[in-house]
Every structure is written in structure tokens, then in C-alpha cells.
Nucleic acid binder design. Structure first.
Length: 467
DNA sequence: GTAGGGTTAG
């Protein structure tokens, strides 16, 4: 006897079912009540007839983390017995999920989670540092986290710190100081370290120094520049309008004996050619990749989609590029869809954009914060405010904050409508995703507030300002 | 998915 009601006789079967279940909430229900009797009544759940394996915890935690269902994830972690000896990679998934969700305090708490046996290694520390970097924590905070942990830093630690130095101060010089410190402590730089420096100089527009780093790494450290290094340099050259130089650099890259089959650098070139209106050269670029046996990767497909949407204004061609991508065995990601959503909105086709977003889960791609922002902005720009209201509710429910620009237009519309109750709930929703800025409610106060609801809102705003 | 790039916001 098997089937939906028989459920699972072992943690092995449960793990397989959890893995198969695409809906994280459904997976959680399976995890919580793997037997039919347990499913019948949550309060009287008997213990399942088997012991959960670490694998089951692994799968459910990762699924919940990916879906940002953090309270559920925490409750599963709280049930995780330390006797199962969960290992650091799982902890790292949790930490980085919080980093991606921009929840630094939660990331710090996870780092110290008691279910995971001490001591922590540099790997967990580095994951935490990277999460904090994603939350735009300033460099001194990362440094003190580092010192406080008592964990010996490795090259990866320094690479993250160097990135943070650039992100924080915008100056490459602090990154260079960290590089010197790293050498003094006898930690050998890796190809990633040099890639980070090259990128930092490129972003600062200091191309001569970027090329100097490339030279130093090969001549003094005998580390050959890889595709990352070339990609940064080529992008910087394209941005300065030196597409021919970028072309030459690409030649150097592919003539390197190392099997550089990475297509990322081609994406930059393709997009730069689109911007210059040289669609034909993109075609020959793709042919060249085919000749050389270089797989056309996701980024190249995405830069084609972007080229058609933004440079050519040709949505049909963009959707055709999406089809090509799928036919070529490359799964479109949120960048692909976000570009199309933006393109449709820009053409005023926000109803089509809305449909595309609704279709994304079925196509195997979860809408992200960019998806919703572009759609919301596009609808607000076009004045489709009742649809905007629907999208707004959906995105806020998922924990995504709308863009400032969209909020301004949306709140402006609600003010003009003079619906104080709506305004109140929208302000609350904005506060729930930390998107309520003083300027918004100051403006709201000077707006529609001349009816009895006025006092209520003023009181609400006072409360918000105290929070 | 412990670190760097390339395609979308900003």
C-alpha cells in the first residue's frame, strides 16, 4: 500500500519526498507530520515511527531558507538535536540566507546557534563576514567580528575584508593596506585576491593600476589571470568606449593555454556591441564561441535579452532570445525575466509584464525584489494604480520593499484619492518592510488630512516615529 | 552557497 495517505516509513523516504516537493510550505507540512495520524491532528501528533536523519533537516532548512520562510526555518533548527552533529555547511547556508535577506542581526545569531557544535572554523566566520558585507556593514564592524571570534583568518577572510574596504570607503587604498597586512601575516594571496584588486581598480576607473596588478600577479606571483580578471578589465574598457581594446584582450584570454571556456567575459562584449548598435558583430561573436566550443552561458543569453529590450526596443526579438536560451539547454533566471519585465513596462505593456511575473513560478523561477520593483514602478509610471495596489500587497507580503520612486508615486496617488484608511494601511505595510522614510509621512501629513481620520493618522505617524 | 567577474535595480 502506498500513495498519498500511506506517507513514509523511514527517514530515507521522507527525505526523498521532501526533495521532490517544490512548494516549501508543503515540504514543511510533510516534515512536521510525516504520518497520516499526525496529519489528522497537530495537537495529538505522535512521534513518527523513525528517527529523522540529518539529511531531512538539511533539505527542509535549505528549502525554507531559499523561500525566506525564516520563522519556520528557525523552528526546525530549534528541533534539530545536536546529537545528530549537524555540520558547518548547513550552518553556512543559514547564515548566508540571512545575509541575502539583509538581516545582519539574524546572521550573527545564527553564527552562534547552539545546535551546531563549537568550535567554528574560518569557513563559518567567512560566511558571516560575507553576509554582513551583503548587509552593507561598515569595515570596522567586520574587523571587530573577526578579532572577536578568535578564529585565525585565511586568504578568503582577507578577500572578503578587501571587498568590504572598497564597498565601505570606496577607496582602493584601504584594500591595498589589507593586502599588505595579509602578506605580513604570511597568508598567501590567491587568484581571487588579485581578481578583487583588479576589480577594485577597475571600478575606481584606475585602469593603469588594474593592468599593473595583472602584470604583478603573473610575473611576481606566477598566478595566471583567469576569466574573472579578464572580465573586469574588459568591462572597464567597454565602459570607457574602448571596445576594440576589449576585443583584443578577449583574444589574449582565449589564446591563453589555460582552457578558458568561461563565457562571462563574452557577455560584456555582447552588451557593449549592442549599445553601439552593432548587432551584427554580436552574431559573429556567438559564431566564434560555437567554433571554439565555448558554451553560450546564461550571462551571454541575458545580455542578448537586455540588448534587444533596452538597446533595440525589440521585445519580440527579446522573447525569441529567451526561447533560444531554453532550447540551448540554459535555464532562464530572474535576471532574464526581470529584463523582460522592465522592457515590457517601458513599452507601456504592464499588463503583459504582470502576466509574465505571475507565470514565473510555473516557469521555475521565483520573482525576486528586482522583479517586483520593476513591475511596481512600471505600473505606477503608467498610472495603473489599482493593479499597483495588488502588486504592492503581494510584494510586501513576501517581505520585499518597493523602490523609493514607486513609493512616491503610489503614495501620491493614494493622497489624491483622499482615502485615509488606505493611506494608513499602506504606511503600515511600508513600515513592515522598513521602507517608510520620514519624507513620506511628512508629505502624507500635509496632504489629505482634513477629515476626522486626520487625528487617527497623526497618532499613527507619531507611533511610527517613536518606533 | 566560505571569497573575486560577467547579464537586471540602485
Amino acid at each position: 500500500m502506498s500513495g498519498a495517505t500511506a506517507k513514509f516509513s523511514s527517514s530515507y523516504h521522507l527525505a526523498a519526498a521532501l526533495r521532490r516537493e517544490p512548494d516549501p510550505a508543503a515540504a514543511l507540512r510533510l516534515f512536521l507530520s510525516p504520518t497520516p495520524t499526525a496529519a489528522a491532528g497537530p495537537s495529538s501528533s505522535p512521534a513518527p515511527p523513525f528517527r529523522y536523519s540529518l539529511r531531512c533537516y538539511d533539505i527542509i532548512v535549505c528549502k525554507l531558507a531559499a523561500a525566506r520562510l525564516f520563522p519556520a526555518m528557525e523552528s526546525v533548527l530549534a528541533r534539530l538535536p545536536s546529537s545528530l552533529r549537524p555540520r558547518e555547511p548547513l550552518l553556512c547556508r543559514v547564515i548566508s540566507a540571512y545575509g541575502r535577506a539583509r538581516l545582519p542581526a539574524a546572521a550573527r545569531r545564527a553564527f552562534a546557534h547552539p545546535a551546531f557544535p563549537a568550535p567554528r572554523t574560518a569557513r563559518a566566520l567567512n560566511t558571516l563576514l560575507h553576509a554582513l558585507l551583503a548587509c552593507r556593514a561598515p569595515l570596522p564592524e567586520l574587523l571587530s567580528e573577526c578579532r572577536g571570534s578568535g578564529i585565525h583568518p585565511d586568504a578568503c577572510t582577507y578577500n572578503i575584508l578587501m571587498r568590504a574596504a572598497v564597498a565601505d570607503s570606496g577607496s582602493v587604498d584601504n584594500a591595498c593596506l589589507l593586502f599588505d597586512e595579509m602578506l605580513q601575516r604570511g597568508i598567501a594571496p590567491t587568484v581571487v585576491t588579485f581578481g578583487t584588486l583588479v576589480t577594485a581598480f577597475c571600478e575606481a576607473g584606475r585602469l593603469e593600476e588594474a593592468f599593473k596588478v595583472k602584470e604583478v600577479m603573473s610575473l611576481q606571483y606566477n598566478i595566471r589571470p583567469n576569466a574573472h580578471v579578464y572580465a573586469s578589465l574588459m568591462k572597464a574598457l567597454c565602459e570607457k568606449g574602448k571596445v576594440d581594446d576589449a576585443h583584443r584582450l578577449k583574444e589574449e584570454m582565449v589564446s591563453n593555454s589555460e582552457p578558458l571556456v568561461d563565457s562571462g567575459a563574452y557577455a560584456t562584449l555582447a552588451r557593449a556591441l549592442f549599445r553601439l548598435g552593432k548587432k551584427g558583430e554580436v552574431v559573429s561573436l556567438l559564431e566564434e564561441m560555437k567554433e571554439k566550443g565555448i558554451k553560450v552561458g546564461r550571462e551571454v543569453h541575458n545580455s542578448m535579452i537586455a540588448g534587444f529590450c533596452e538597446d533595440e526596443g525589440d521585445l519580440d526579438a527579446a522573447f525569441a532570445a529567451l526561447d533560444d536560451m531554453q532550447k540551448g539547454g540554459c535555464k532562464p533566471d530572474s535576471v532574464s525575466y526581470n529584463t523582460l519585465v522592465g522592457g515590457l513596462c517601458k513599452m507601456g505593456r504592464w499588463r503583459d509584464a504582470s502576466e509574465l511575473v505571475e507565470d514565473m513560478p510555473r516557469r521555475g523561477c521565483r520573482p525576486d525584489v528586482v522583479t517586483y520593483r520593476r513591475l511596481f514602478d512600471g505600473i505606477c509610471d503608467a498610472g495603473g494604480f489599482s493593479e499597483a495596489r495588488r502588486v504592492f500587497n503581494e510584494m510586501v507580503f513576501k517581505g520585499f520593499a518597493p523602490s523609493k520612486d514607486g513609493v512616491r508615486k503610489f503614495v501620491g496617488w493614494i493622497e489624491r484619492e483622499g482615502d485615509a484608511a488606505s493611506l494608513e494601511s499602506v504606511l503600515c505595510q511600508l513600515a513592515s518592510v522598513n521602507a517608510l522614510e520620514s519624507s513620506e509621512w511628512e508629505k502624507a501629513m500635509s496632504g489629505v488630512l482634513h477629515d476626522p481620520a486626520e487625528q487617527k493618522i497623526v497618532k499613527l505617524l507619531d507611533n511610527l516615529s517613536l518606533a
